Computed example of a mutant assay.
Amino acid sequence: MDVRKEDVTAQDVIVLLQDHLKSMTMHSPPESIHALNADRLRQPDVTFWSARENGILLGCGALKELNSRHGEIKSMKTSPHHVRKGVANRILRHMLEEARQRGYQRISLETGSMEAFLPARRLYEKAGFQYCDPFAHYKEDPNSLFMTLNIG
């Protein structure tokens, strides 16, 4: 499995991101959806990675710079055809290593509080993330949970 920076223009990436946003709308009210669309993932403060094997897209993730010491994990998604193969864990490890190289002291994320987001929360818990108060622009929301990991 190869994790690499990728421009958010490949058709299979666009389809996976659309699936990600669609699944968010199935489980969260519109005001509680914080996933980034393809245009927002192309902004200079966001780095996007894909995981591929033999050219096949397995999943993706992005890291948004909040400031020089704090990053945010965004748009983590595994292709439905490749769940339970370690894709999300591999992308997460890659992003955490990149965050350390950038000198970030902390990585945070927002995820849903509903049952559908339990696998994601377990992944982050296993990686050492702790639940925290809202950060950056986020506000308290019964549909959201916030997590952070000190990496400095």
Rank of each mutant, 00 (worst) to 15 (best):
residue 129 F to P: 11
residue 50 S to Y: 03
residue 111 T to A: 13
residue 86 G to C: 01
residue 92 L to C: 05
residue 121 R to P: 00
residue 27 H to Y: 15
residue 1 M to R: 06
residue 136 A to C: 08
residue 110 E to F: 08
residue 133 D to P: 04
residue 29 P to C: 06
residue 76 M to E: 08
residue 23 S to N: 14
residue 36 L to F: 13
residue 50 S to L: 03
residue 70 H to S: 05
residue 131 Y to K: 10
residue 21 L to H: 00
residue 78 T to L: 08
residue 55 G to C: 05
residue 9 T to F: 14
residue 73 I to L: 15
residue 80 P to R: 05
residue 51 A to K: 02
residue 122 R to H: 13
residue 126 K to I: 07
residue 111 T to I: 05
residue 3 V to Q: 05
residue 105 Q to C: 07
residue 103 G to S: 00
residue 123 L to P: 03
residue 29 P to W: 06
residue 19 D to G: 15
residue 131 Y to Q: 09
residue 96 L to N: 05
residue 48 F to M: 11
residue 41 L to R: 07
residue 13 V to Y: 10
residue 125 E to Q: 14
residue 15 V to G: 02
residue 2 D to H: 09
residue 86 G to E: 08
residue 69 R to C: 10
residue 117 F to N: 00
residue 144 S to G: 10
residue 39 D to M: 09
residue 133 D to E: 12
residue 146 F to H: 02
residue 54 N to K: 13
residue 39 D to L: 12
residue 21 L to N: 04
residue 43 Q to L: 13
residue 63 L to C: 02
residue 7 D to R: 14
residue 11 Q to H: 15
residue 127 A to Q: 03
residue 93 R to S: 15
residue 42 R to K: 13
residue 95 M to N: 02
residue 80 P to Y: 04
residue 24 M to G: 07
residue 56 I to R: 14
residue 145 L to E: 01
residue 57 L to C: 01
residue 15 V to S: 10
residue 76 M to W: 03
residue 35 A to M: 00
residue 49 W to E: 05
residue 41 L to H: 03
residue 121 R to E: 12
residue 23 S to C: 04
residue 60 C to S: 15
residue 12 D to T: 04
residue 8 V to T: 09
residue 21 L to T: 07
residue 47 T to I: 14
residue 102 R to F: 06
residue 75 S to V: 07
residue 126 K to D: 06
residue 45 D to K: 05
residue 132 C to A: 05
residue 65 E to S: 12
residue 89 N to P: 09
residue 29 P to G: 06
residue 127 A to E: 03
residue 103 G to P: 08
residue 126 K to Y: 01
residue 25 T to Y: 04
residue 6 E to P: 04
residue 90 R to F: 11
residue 151 I to D: 00
residue 37 N to D: 15
residue 103 G to T: 11
residue 58 L to C: 03
residue 76 M to A: 11
residue 83 V to Y: 01
residue 103 G to N: 03
residue 113 S to Y: 07
residue 53 E to W: 03
residue 78 T to M: 01
residue 61 G to N: 09
residue 78 T to S: 12
residue 91 I to V: 14
residue 101 Q to H: 12
residue 113 S to I: 05
residue 105 Q to A: 07
residue 99 A to S: 14
residue 22 K to C: 04
residue 38 A to D: 11
residue 123 L to T: 00
residue 37 N to H: 07
residue 90 R to I: 02
residue 50 S to A: 15
residue 20 H to V: 04
residue 76 M to L: 14
residue 17 L to E: 11
residue 150 N to G: 06
residue 26 M to Q: 14
residue 73 I to W: 09
residue 94 H to T: 12
residue 149 L to D: 00
residue 12 D to W: 04
residue 131 Y to N: 01
residue 144 S to D: 11
residue 13 V to A: 13
residue 7 D to A: 15
residue 138 Y to G: 05
residue 73 I to S: 09
residue 86 G to N: 04
residue 66 L to Q: 01
residue 50 S to D: 10
residue 8 V to A: 00
residue 113 S to F: 11
residue 103 G to C: 00
residue 9 T to L: 14
residue 123 L to I: 01
residue 15 V to F: 01
residue 112 G to D: 07
residue 50 S to W: 04
residue 123 L to A: 08
residue 7 D to F: 12
residue 12 D to Q: 10
residue 128 G to F: 11
residue 132 C to Y: 08
residue 93 R to K: 15
residue 15 V to E: 14
